[in-house]
Design a protein around this nucleic acid. Structure first.
Lengths: 148, 148
DNA sequence: TGATTAGTGGACCTTTCTATCCACTATTAT
DNA sequence: ATAATAGTGGATAGAAAGGTCCACTAATCA
């Protein structure tokens, strides 16, 4: 089945989007954010650990601690998050599984897929965590104003 | 990690592309084609069974038997094969895992993903098994002519 | 110093996907 | 009829992804 990214990555996107939408110093706690966006805490913690080791998040221990983004949300694209979680080469594998697929020995789908991939990645590079955070916040504000 | 489709679907595409590239009555045997394109036979047989039950292939038992495509290769797009193996709804799931994601309650990524998906599916609908078969045949002929 | 808070790292379990095996049925040829 | 061929269906095994638990460390506060 089709998968744009793993579950861990999905959780990371949801969690970080929520974190970015919160006003304040930008610090968030794993427990809190997982509860808020309704994703499995233990599992997501592992993803946070990986993002920390990858230099994407900074961990702060002890009371009042949590995580902080090392860049501001408007400087982080979806592709950044995806590649941080999945590795830089997620989109690089030959879709027909030809080990030799490449410039010199392209598989029959190489050109087609290259084109599709380019368009896909352009979309993912185009939007930032801040964009996503804004769109959720807007929605909530609309609901609030309309009394829903 | 990113996956355009499952292993089974990858094998189906490779096998059917090979089958389409063969001259003759269009009948092929599981054992033969799996050997030729170097994919696991037992596993791929299951995929063939599914494609048969889905009306995509016709099975012929006994000596000289095998499978036949129920449509000609130039009438079968990559998207056809993918949806036949993976189900019609492979590309329909919300990428952020929001159960409510849809026209009325779009997730923050809904628009972005819809656009990317449309472009992706356009690519997959554009090429047929015959196209893929032709490109592999052309390559072989080139190699033959050039003496490689 | 001791209690509390919050992230860490490793072991372990469950589910899904991938893969193999084998007895069985249908078909053809001798 | 019998043997050989080719797909079928079910059981089962192995690998990877998804998920949980718990003892531990670091930091803060009383």
């Amino acid at each position: 089945m089709f998968k744009l990214y793993s579950k861990g990555c999905e959780y990371a996107l949801r969690a970080l989007t929520y974190a970015a939408s919160q006003s304040g110093n930008g610090r968030f706690q794993a427990r809190d954010v997982c509860e808020k966006v309704d994703i499995p805490e233990s599992f997501t913690r592992k993803v946070f650990q990986a993002l920390t080791q990858g230099g994407f998040l900074q961990a702060v221990r002890g009371p009042g601690g949590g995580y902080e983004l090392t860049r501001s949300p408007e400087q982080i694209t979806l592709l950044d998050v995806i590649e941080a979680v999945e590795g830089q080469d997620t989109f690089e594998h030959c879709v027909l599984g030809f080990p030799e697929c490449g410039g010199k020995h392209p598989c029959p789908l190489h050109e087609t897929w290259s084109k599709a991939k380019k368009q896909l990645m352009a979309q993912l590079e185009h939007r930032t965590l801040q964009d996503l955070a804004d769109s959720t916040t807007r929605k909530k504000r609309r609901a609030f104003v309309s009394g829903a």
